[in-house]
Simulated assay, not measured.
Amino acid sequence: MRKQLIRIKLAFAVLLAASALPAQALAEAQAYPDRPITLIVPYSPSGVTDAYARSIGDYLGRLWNTQVIVENKGGAGTIIGTQHVSRAKPDGYTLLLTSYAYTSNPILRKDLPYDPASLTPVMLLGSSRSMLVVSSKSDLHTLKDVIAKGKKAPGNLKFASSGNASSPHIAAELWAKEVGVSITHIPYKGTGPAMNDLFGGLVDGIFDGPSSIANVHAGRLRALGIASETRHPAAPEVPTFKEQGIDLVFGSWFGFLAPAGTPKPVIQKINDGLNKSLSDPKVKAVLDAAGLFIVGGTPEEFASFLDHESNRLQGLVDSGVKLLVK
């Protein structure tokens, strides 16, 4: 566990260290991109990460006059897709759009089939706050109802997630610890399949990001609380957990990474394009509809953010919070 965290830190240190690049690398950066780019999403189609990737990929394709192919490689809590990118040629033509599991997997998993140092940060897209939602057809109408069901019998409460070690998984475990209940965690290969079973009544709830607000307003879901300091502006009717006596502030993030060793000028060109995409009306509409707090910024800022998130989670694990997965 400690070794994995050290590897993450080494990856960030490599990014932050400036080095002279050969003339060939500079020439490649100037020509970049001269062929299609593959953007890997380590989740199944129809989830929020997939929506972000497709809208931003479309913009980059128009900006660079090339094709950006979004490829979904879901499963194993993002490990399949992440491992694929970690083994890709470091030339900027294979990128990863991932989320919280990138920082949690090295800490929560005993055997990771890739080295976190094999990837380098490009840009932090944005962050969100976890919101507990249940089906509008559920008999769980309030947070008290959910807690009561959880206390009725150990494991009686079933929470879905987009995969082991994902932010919905961790949010559920942290929430259960705070309220003193035992839950049954049901991992899926992405948010889309998890939502389908939530709508179908096969699970009780999920700690999703504000992307669920659209389904709440459409009457398909019922929001019972949000793990934020303040209420979300897109759903001011949803109370925070703190308002309901539960000390829980937690959320996910979304960001772009590339294989380590990708020339710094290429990383910078990708970063510039990604930052420009955040001002595009079509992209912004998708991000705003999901309730994402848009961030952007430099690769170095994203590296520092990842370092902070890793330290925070490691601190939770060291304090005794049971989040370890196989």
Rank of each mutant, 00 (worst) to 15 (best):
V216I: 05
E300P: 05
V295H: 03
K137G: 01
A13F: 10
D58M: 07
M195R: 00
R222S: 05
G155Y: 06
S182L: 04
D197A: 15
A165H: 02
G75F: 09
V238T: 10
G47C: 15
P281I: 14
P193H: 09
G57P: 08
S167I: 14
V133C: 04
V133R: 00
G150A: 13
S136N: 08
P45M: 11
L97N: 10
N105D: 07
S136Q: 13
V325L: 08
Y102I: 05
S304T: 09
G126A: 03
P116S: 05
T98E: 01
L224C: 00
I79L: 06
I170D: 03
I69W: 02
P236L: 06
D197Y: 11
N72G: 13
P33W: 01
L16S: 08
A165Y: 04
D111F: 03
S304F: 01
A13H: 02
L287Q: 00
K284R: 14
D50Y: 12
I6Q: 11
S161E: 08
L21Q: 01
D50M: 13
D111P: 04
L274T: 04
G155K: 05
A17F: 09
P116K: 08
N65W: 02
K110M: 13
K158P: 03
K9R: 04
V70C: 13
A25S: 07
L15V: 06
W175V: 01
G297P: 09
L198C: 12
S319N: 14
I213H: 02
Y114S: 04
D280Y: 02
V48S: 12
A25R: 00
S44G: 15
D34G: 15
V85Y: 10
P45K: 12
R35P: 06
P113F: 05
T82S: 06
S319K: 14
G74S: 15
T262G: 11
V14L: 03
N196H: 14
D208L: 02
I213M: 02
R87M: 08
L324E: 11
A88T: 13
A13Q: 00
P236A: 12
L287V: 06
G92S: 10
G190R: 11
N271G: 04
Q83D: 12
V266W: 01
A176D: 10
A260G: 02
D91M: 03
L306P: 00
A153M: 12
S127V: 14
A31G: 10
N72S: 15
S118Q: 06
K137L: 08
A290W: 07
R109L: 07
N196G: 12
A223H: 00
P263A: 14
S44V: 12
I6C: 00
S212V: 11
Y100K: 12
G126V: 10
F293P: 01
G320P: 12
